[in-house]
Structure formats: C-alpha cells, structure tokens
Amino acid sequence: MSTTPEQLYNFGFIDEDSKREVRRQILKAIALPGHQVPFASRDLPIARGWGTGGLQITMAIIDADDTLKVIDQGDDESVNAVNLRRLLQRTTGVTTTVDTTAASIIQTRHRIPEEPMRRDQILVLQVPMVDPLRWVEPNLERATIMHGESDYGRMWVYMYESVVKAGDLRIATQYPVIVAGRYMMDTTPIPRWDVMRLHNAEALFLFGAGREKRIYAVPPYTTIEPLQFEDFRFKTEFVAGQICARCGAQDTFLTSHFVVDSDHADGGHWRSSCSDTSFCDKRVLVNATTQEAPQ
C-alpha cells in the first residue's frame, strides 16, 4: 500500500479497458438514437444513483484540454454537483467553469442549461430510471422485447388513462418521447420544459444510467416527439405571467425558494427564480450594468 496520503489514480479514474467499453457503447448508442445500450458500469467512488452513469460517460470521453461544467438542478453550487466536479477535477485536472458557453462538456442532473448549446459541446445527463416502459412493464427481459418490436401500445394506454384520471399527461418528469421515429425513450428526470430542447438540437446529448447499466443518446438534428394525443397535447410547466424574481426572465424554468428578508419583517415568503443559476447570475449582472449605464 502506498504511504503517501493521496493515492495516484488513472486519468479519469476508471481503467483504460473500462473506458474503452463505455466508448464502444456510446458509439452504438449514437447509431441507435434513443435505444438503451447495456454497458458494464463499473463501481465509482460515488454512490449508485448519485450520477455514476453520467460520470462514467464523462470519464470515458474527457480529454485533458476539455472545459467542464457540472450542474445539479441547474445549479453549479449544489452539493452533489460540487462533489462530482471535485472527483472529475481531481482525477483529470481539467479546467472547470460555471459558464455554459465556455464549457466543452457539461454534466447535468435534472436540467438542460437555458442557454442553447453549440455543436462543439456535449451534454452528459445523469439518469436514474432508464426505461419509460418500466411504468407498464417492470420486467427487463419483456421490456427489452417490447422495444425490439416497437410494441408501445401499453404505454399509450397508460398515457390515455392518465389523461382521463388526472386531466393531464400525469408524468411530470422522465416524459416519454419517440426518438427519430423509432425508439421510445425516457427523457431522464428533466422537466417537460426541457423535453423539446432535445429536438433537432445542435449539441450531442449522452445519457448515462450507472445503476441501471444503460447508455443512450440523442444525436444532433434528431427528431423528438413527446407522447401526446390529438385532443390532448404535450404541455410544459410554463405558466403565463411567470417571472424570475432575481433576473426578471419570463421564459426560463423556475424553482421556488423560501426567502426571509434581512429585517425579518414578513416572517419570510416563497419566491421563484431560475433553476439555471449561472444563467440567472449572468442576467442579473447584465441588468445591473444596463441600469448603471448613462442614458
């Protein structure tokens, strides 16, 4: 055993053959848009369910000159994002950033950044539950056959029942979509807000589920059709009149915060602001400079 306090790990933590296996499966995932490709999924020093799928993808693709951004809930400073970034930074030494436009690889949980991503960027999504059919068919062997045969009838029935019972397509996140006209895919726990941002995008989207041991991909310029009915269309969370309390944006995904003013006058209240914090910060800064600028 090494006597130094810090052990030397492989660049990108996992061994080269494990990386190679992930790489092979990523290429297959791209060639089969929306299809879940099994991969061996090594154990990482991060718990299963905490982003190990996304991490393995990032570890397999990352190069020393990449610039990395890691977010959780859209937030760079969320504890889990900090933790994953720390592991990747310590085992690769790459530059990290909070600026979406400066990153070459963005690893994320639950959000797609608000700023449109470019063709030279890759978004790596951490996936907890891989299979949209899990709602109707928990058995993997049978669900795999259903995907193979495009046998999606039961899922349509499930969606229809949710409309009848709840008056809405009840699935809030992990909304099922059809990719490139063939495979039904789970959109990870991104909100509906982000679902259509996968459609015909410029960037490549890679999805990794470590515990479920699956990788899937949405290449750029690939069609994404959410499951919906003629008389019941897919809707995002957007509510008319919504506004970010910090930056004033009217077209972003908002999350609620409980706020107590410094004088504790009102005992606190809820307010909504952008979940993409770095984007929100940028806008706050721009607002401040425009206000200060002479007329």
Binding site: D75, I190, W193, T255, S256
Partner: peptide, 30 residues
C-alpha cells in the same frame, strides 16, 4: 451497494422534479 446508493439518492435535491410534480398536481386539482 446499488440498492443502498439508489435508496440514499433521495437525499439529493429534487427541487426541479418536485416543481414539475407540483405543476402536474395543480392541473390534476383543476
């Protein structure tokens, strides 16, 4: 290791998904 990891992952922030759940709940109530 897998089971405990996933069971413990509910400690992670879920406010984006919860916000989306809230919207669905609102619509269901309506």
């Amino acid at each position: 290791i897998e089971a405990s990891g996933f069971t413990a992952h509910y400690k992670l922030p879920h406010y984006v998904t919860f916000e989306a759940d809230l919207k669905v709940l609102d619509r269901a109530r309506e």
